[in-house]
Design a protein around this nucleic acid. Structure first.
Lengths: 234, 234
DNA sequence: AATCACTTCCCCATTTTAGGGGAAGAAGGG
DNA sequence: CCCTTCTTCCCCTAAAATGGGGAAGTGATT
């Protein structure tokens, strides 16, 4: 299953084709729904999914990502998440769940969080209407496949995006990196300069040149952009 | 190979045990060296590796991560990196490479970048002294195993760390998130307040409560911490 | 050898932020 | 029903950051 999928994936060149390939996983994976959803650092989103348009629309409209326990858990965890193990208490959460099931999402689900460079984040989810036991068997048997599938899908999605987007690759000098790092760690300019054993004036030059390179409006923006681009190793 | 490795991993409970299990991958993977190296958002590092102590010491002392093309590439990429495909031009880089090979690192290598929540970043690397052709065969045949291995190692490492560290899980209110997001996007307080249609005074309350929750010294620090913890979706 | 990027230092006026107070209605959870 | 958290508004002063200049030495690349 994985072999032919990766083969198909290899030939994909556009996001539309990627969508088709992801959707086509539904049968071989033997699930109700398949979802790949990516958010990059600039807030651009891409999704390939088998949910109904109505549900997707409703989800976005209501900003359900804010309360969806699956999203909340995946943002905070590294390992894949079985929906059953999440905390579904809370009024808003239960309403959301009811609505989701009514929209045919299925009450069983398995979501793999995936993180790319520059703060990119994606979710690969399969859902089903199986009973608990069947689902438990299914997830233990196929978790590896699902992890690899999510990895390869994300790789392809990033590849396509990078090709189209062609975002400038900024690089900071060591001292610029140092300066922004100190600020990101909470030091004031005076403290940061002290920590780096340079004058505060010098530090400012680094911050300003970094700001220029990063096309940032102010220091906080510069730090945010640098972090987002993985330029700072705190 | 993967099966027994995951079995062994399952029983690991401390970082020392993890180290042993990672090192023990050397033979079954049929490589010269195995390295797992993780850096989390607070700068704490953990490494399990088979390199000589001298080389590790030298690497840290010289801050070679700054020029090591493998690290530089992995920070920026999602997919695994074959060392041969990197750019080894540049004086400093070539010196570094010579020194690395002299230290027995091996001239072939394959590195898998892995990212966890809260800006955690890790590298799983295998290196060898094989010739190009053999190595090409090796990497294509085993890349999936290596990806899965890196995934499971990282999962275990995070699990152990979380258990020991028990870092407070901070959650920001929607408005606090909004406020920090606007600042991270480069807006000044006045602009941010305007964008959120609230008074600047109100905005400040959010920033300060967020700062309090995040135990941040100042606004920039708060934004940095929030981003690092994946609390902001720019 | 020339050029380009990096590092380091300095001044000054203006704008922005930080940090210390306090208050009150709305919504959600136990 | 009460309590906690969230949301929104306001004042003030001292401290910090911004933005505009300019200059000189080092190192690497070409």
């Amino acid at each position: 299953m994985l072999e032919s999928f990766i083969d198909k994936l290899q030939r994909v060149e556009t996001l539309e084709e990627l969508n088709d390939v992801v959707v086509s996983l539904r049968d071989p994976l033997d699930v109700e729904h398949v979802v790949y959803h990516s958010v990059n650092s600039t807030g651009e989103q891409y999704a390939a999914l088998t949910y109904t348009q109505e549900w997707v629309h409703r989800y976005l409209e209501q900003d359900y990502a804010r309360i969806d326990p699956v999203v909340q858990a995946c943002v905070r965890r590294f390992h894949p998440v079985d929906w059953k193990r999440l905390d579904w208490s809370g009024k808003a959460v239960r309403n959301f769940m009811t609505e989701a099931i009514d929209s045919g999402v299925g009450h069983q689900g398995f979501s793999v969080p995936i993180r790319g460079p520059s703060g990119q984040f994606a979710l690969f989810t399969v859902s089903s209407a199986d009973k608990d036991e069947q689902w438990a068997t299914y997830t233990t048997e196929r978790s590896r496949e699902l992890i690899l599938a999510s990895h390869y899908i994300n790789q392809k999605a990033l590849e396509i995006e990078r090709g189209s987007d062609q975002m400038e690759i900024v690089s900071l000098s060591p001292r610029e990196t140092d300066a922004l790092t100190m600020l990101a760690l909470g030091y004031s300019r005076a403290q940061a300069a002290d920590g780096l054993s340079i004058s505060e004036h010098t530090l400012r030059v680094y911050i300003e040149s970094a700001r220029f390179k990063l096309a940032a409006m102010n220091t906080t923006h510069a730090v945010a952009r640098a972090m987002n681009q993985g330029l700072l190793i705190l």
